[in-house]
């Protein structure tokens, strides 16, 4: 019996961590490269979920194709957001924070007014449940685990192995220096925002199938994404993996021993202790 619970908990940790990593990935990318604390990330994630829902359920397109179209559409939305909302305020943290907070309200209100607040769910991407040795995992969670891992790896490889990725790294270290070296910083900013938003759309679509869709679905996930990025250390995309695993492990195991809201409090206390030991986060740069 205890071994069944332990085995199921290990699976829960991996699945929940992959959900968190997927949500935090785009947020971490924008913070690392552009230095933007994009609070609207979770609202963009919600928009991605709704686009996927509309295409898959209302229009009747195949779910995977809907996810792909949602990714592209939200990536294009990212280009628009970068040009209109982010670029004019790039070096002004105060304004960018206010702008991204305003974006949350705009996006949530738009969905609330146009689609309504009725809770929806995207039909399963991978129907069915996998059962083995007393452990169960739904197809959607398994898909999220695989997609989360693949996307994380793809983003890391993209940044380290491609010219555009290396330019992103250069900008993240010194944007003025990078510009002096001939890097078209605005183009890189636009590409980064588009990728970050597209990643949010993937996360929103998968969460729309695993959990549910509502205009305010991103509110709590935003807090999780911030916790992961701070734990990982600002500037570390790879650290998102460890940050996500730690937060997933806390959220999946603490409810077995501690009840209710005390799990949140205990989880945050552990994160604070880790940050007291390493203020720059697990893989962050010393400032």
């Amino acid at each position: 019996m205890i071994s069944d619970v332990a085995a199921q908990t290990v699976v829960n940790v991996l699945m929940l961590s992959s959900i968190y990593i997927l949500v935090a990935l785009g947020f971490a990318l924008l913070l690392t490269v552009l230095g933007i604390l994009n609070f609207a990330h979770a609202a963009i994630y919600m928009v991605g979920g709704y686009i996927c829902y509309q295409l898959a359920v209302v229009v009747g397109i195949n779910q995977w194709a809907s996810l792909l179209i949602s990714m592209i559409a939200v990536g294009l939305l990212g280009l628009f957001l970068e040009r209109v909302f982010f670029r004019p305020f790039l070096k002004d943290m105060n304004r960018i924070v206010v702008v991204t907070l305003a974006l949350i309200i705009i996006l949530q209100a738009t969905i609330n007014v146009t689609v309504g607040s009725y809770i929806r769910r995207i039909p399963s991407f991978v129907p069915g449940v996998l059962r083995f040795s007393g452990v169960s995992v739904s197809g959607d969670r398994l898909a999220t685990f695989v997609i989360g891992g693949v996307l994380l790896l793809a983003v890391i490889l993209f940044i380290r192995k491609t010219k555009t990725g290396l330019q992103m790294l250069a900008i993240s270290q010194d944007s003025d220096g990078a510009a002096l070296q001939g890097i078209k910083t605005h183009r890189i900013f636009a590409v980064t925002t588009a990728i970050g938003c597209a990643l949010a759309a993937v996360a929103g679509s998968l969460m729309g199938a695993i959990l549910s869709l509502s205009p305010f679905m991103g509110d709590i996930m935003l807090v999780k994404a911030i916790e992961i990025v701070i734990l990982a250390g600002i500037g570390s995309i790879g650290g998102v993996l460890i940050g996500g695993l730690i937060l997933g492990a806390l959220d999946a195991t603490l409810p077995l021993f501690i009840s209710g809201s005390a799990t949140d409090l205990t989880g945050l206390c552990i994160i604070i202790i880790l940050l007291l030991i390493r203020p720059q986060g697990l893989f962050g740069r010393e400032v």
Binding site: Q8, N12, M15, L16, I220, M221, D251, T263, D264
Partner: peptide, 10 residues
Amino acid sequence: WAMTTQDFSP
């Protein structure tokens, strides 16, 4: 369950 729970699996 905490009011902030996203995943009820645990």
